[in-house]
Every structure is written in C-alpha cells, then in structure tokens.
Computed example of a mutant assay.
Amino acid sequence: MRVTLRLRALTPVPGTGPVSLDVPAGRTVALVAPSRVGTAVARVLVGLAPPVDGRILVGERDVTDLPPPRRQIGYVPAGGALLPQLTVRRNIEYGQRKRERVREMAEDWTATVVERLELAPTLALLPHVLTDAQRFRVALARAAACLPEVLVVDLPGGMADGGRLDDLTPRLSPADAPGVAVLVCTADPATLAQIPARVELSIEAVRR
C-alpha cells in the first residue's frame, strides 16, 4: 500500500510558522530548519512531544495524538542515539521488542537490511568502535527493521563519509513495496544538495 505522510497546518514547536507538505511513498523531502529546531520538529513528528497546532497524517490515519509505537513512523535521531551497552545486532533488533505484531516478519527483513547497508561485519561490535558513518547506517537499519510506513531522519550535520542519502534510502524497503516516505530535518548544505524536494520551515525571531 502506498502511504503518504501529510502535515496539515502543523506548528510543530513554539516560534515556528505552520507547515503543510506531502511526502509520497518512495520519495524523500527535506524540511529545512536549524539543527535545534529540526530536532524538536522530528520529536513532534514521531510522537515524543505534542505539536502546538495542526495535524500529522500517515496515509488516511490521523496520528497526531497517537503514541509512537502506533504511528508506524521510524525515527533516526541526530547522532543515531544507539544504546552504548548493546552490540550493533542488538541495537538493530531493539525496536522490534515493542512491535510484537511485526516481529516474525521483521526478522527476515532485518537480515536483508543488514546486508543492504553493509553492516554484517559490525554486528558483534559496540557502537563506540564504529565510525560516524557506520553509526548512522545502524540507526537507519534499526528504524527500517520495524517496517515503518514513514521515516523521519534528523540529520543536522550531514552524513560524513557514509555515502549519499539518496543511495541509502531506497535500500530501506522490500523490493516489492512502494517504498517508505522519508522526511529529513536538516539545514546541512551537502544533504540538501541531494534532496531537490524541500520545504523551508519559517522561524520567528528567537526570544532571549
């Protein structure tokens, strides 16, 4: 099923103007915002904080008031936010613990994502020995392993030497699927150069 992420007059955090946009399945759109604001917006979209106003829709479902596990939105936080005490394998599998209904299906899919993102040699390693690029790929794999319909990526500082985002995102959906809708919160010029479709988030004067 082709699922579109829709933001409707969404004021994600105080000090920002409302934003409306569509991200169709298999497409990537950049929401251009300073790093601090981009992180706050990403947290609102995945359900870790409430918006000021407006609605968030995943396909025909209004998920604005739903808890994170029920949104079917995968999340790649800034820096990856990997659990330092867990191996790469256990980090990737971690999110499935809260998604019982997809676990059996996701186990085979996880192995595919690990192969596609070239992470097999790192599975027994802890995050602190990985490069920044590898940590980013692990965070991508962890989000994709739960079979999300939408993926929100908080990418304030670019991907270092991790390759091109437009090369990695097509690897995150099964071959017979229409692809995941990807929204990237960033102001990084190198990342934006890879994403022709973008929406600028208006920022009001910061109160000090």
Rank of each mutant, 00 (worst) to 15 (best):
L5P: 02
L5C: 00
R8A: 11
A9T: 15
P12E: 11
P14N: 15
P14Q: 14
G15C: 10
T16N: 09
T16H: 11
G17I: 01
P18N: 01
V19A: 09
V19L: 11
S20D: 04
L21P: 02
V23I: 00
P24E: 10
P24Y: 08
P24T: 07
G26R: 08
R27V: 08
V29M: 03
A30C: 05
L31V: 06
P34N: 07
S35R: 07
G38N: 06
A40C: 06
A40I: 04
A40L: 07
R43L: 12
V44F: 00
V44Q: 05
L45F: 02
V46A: 06
A49Q: 09
P50Y: 03
P50H: 06
V52D: 01
R55I: 00
I56T: 00
L57E: 07
V58Q: 08
R61L: 12
R61A: 15
V63L: 14
D65V: 13
P67A: 13
P68K: 12
P68Q: 12
R70K: 15
R70L: 15
I73K: 00
I73G: 03
G74D: 02
V76K: 12
A78N: 08
G80L: 07
A81Q: 03
L82D: 01
L82A: 10
L83D: 01
L83H: 05
P84M: 02
V88N: 11
R89E: 15
E93N: 05
E93V: 10
Y94A: 12
Y94M: 08
G95N: 09
Q96I: 15
R97V: 15
R99H: 14
E100W: 14
R103G: 08
R103W: 07
E104P: 10
M105E: 12
M105P: 05
M105A: 11
A106G: 08
A106Y: 04
D108K: 11
T110D: 09
A111Y: 15
T112V: 07
T112N: 02
T112M: 06
T112C: 04
V113S: 01
V114I: 13
V114M: 07
V114S: 08
E118F: 07
L119P: 09
A120Q: 12
A120I: 14
T122E: 15
T122V: 12
L123A: 11
A124D: 15
L125P: 15
A133G: 00
F136Y: 13
A139D: 10
A141C: 10
A141L: 13
A141P: 06
A143N: 06
A143T: 07
A144Q: 01
A144N: 02
A145Y: 02
P148C: 07
P148S: 11
E149C: 09
L151V: 05
L151A: 09
V152T: 04
V153I: 14
L155H: 11
L155C: 14
P156Y: 12
G157V: 12
G157E: 14
M159N: 04
M159Q: 05
D161N: 05
G162D: 07
G163K: 04
L168I: 03
L168P: 01
P170S: 00
P170V: 02
R171A: 08
P174Y: 01
A175C: 00
A175K: 01
D176H: 01
V182R: 03
V182F: 04
L183Y: 03
A187W: 03
D188E: 02
D188N: 09
A190W: 08
L192Y: 05
L192G: 01
A193G: 08
I195G: 09
P196E: 10
V199W: 13
E204Y: 09
R208H: 09
